[in-house]
């Protein structure tokens, strides 16, 4: 018998959508993550290279903001770009997206690792970290990945920012409107298959999931499991 989302206290904000799409779950970071959709692994990997939508809500993420954010995070061992809207990959696999001079977003990798995230979250306290405040992204933002050669064409329908690979380089960040929601878009691939992270407010998770699947239909896009995405990276 496979794991059901309700077997775990932590669930994806989209777990009902994932269940009805036929997801097969496995445990990741104490949550049930949609690892595949029952198709054979090769077909699902091919789907991810063409156009796939993957729920990453079980993966670690956090954020910090404030005038002293940069100095505090650097004291925890983080490296960060001075310019805004750029991602700096860390040695441990964590990625740090500088959203503004006083705000950063920390994302774990697709295997569920992000030691720096755990370290920073447990080191932070209101009393100790003067001028640096925690932004609990894991509780406030859902996280999706869009992968495949059709992603730039898909984004052209729902987002006004030019996200074609030639104008939106790897590690670029765009904070903008996607299907009328405020969202953070990050280009995550390093070459062959275009791949983007998308984070937005949890209250609209189901809406955006459905809107994306609707917009993807004309390109043959479908949900893909986390296993297919791990295969790509």
């Amino acid at each position: 018998m496979t794991l059901a989302p309700k077997d775990r206290t932590r669930r994806s904000f989209l777990y009902r959508e994932l269940e009805s799409a036929g997801a097969v779950f496995d445990e990741l970071n104490g949550a049930a993550a949609a690892m595949s959709y029952g198709a054979d692994a090769e077909a699902e990997a091919a789907q991810a290279r063409s156009l796939g939508l993957c729920d990453l809500s079980a993966l670690p993420r956090t954020g910090f903001k404030g005038w002293n954010m940069s100095a505090w995070l650097k004291a925890q061992g983080a490296e960060m770009s001075e310019a805004s809207n750029i991602v700096t990959p860390q040695a441990d696999g964590t990625r740090i997206a500088r959203l503004a001079p006083g705000e950063a977003l920390l994302l774990g990798n697709y295997r569920g690792h992000g030691p720096l995230i755990e370290k920073a979250d447990s080191a932070w306290s209101m009393q100790e970290a003067d001028g640096c405040f925690q932004v609990p992204r894991a509780e406030t933002n859902f996280w999706l990945a869009l992968s495949g050669s059709h992603v730039p064409a898909l984004f052209a329908k729902i987002c006004a920012v030019d996200l074609r690979p030639e104008s939106f380089a790897t590690h670029s960040v765009a904070q903008t409107n996607v299907a009328r929601l405020n969202a953070i878009i990050i280009r995550a691939d390093t070459g062959e298959v275009p791949q983007f992270d998308l984070l937005s407010d949890i209250a609209s998770a189901v809406y955006l999931w459905r809107a994306l699947l609707d917009a993807m239909a004309e390109f043959g896009g479908k949900p893909v499991g986390l296993a297919a995405l791990q295969e790509l990276n």
Partner: peptide, 17 residues
């Protein structure tokens, strides 16, 4: 669509402001 230049994020549709 009218565009506005955000000093942090660059050119964006005026609807975003």
């Amino acid at each position: 669509m009218k565009l506005m230049h955000c000093p942090l994020n660059g050119w964006r549709n005026i609807q975003e402001f």
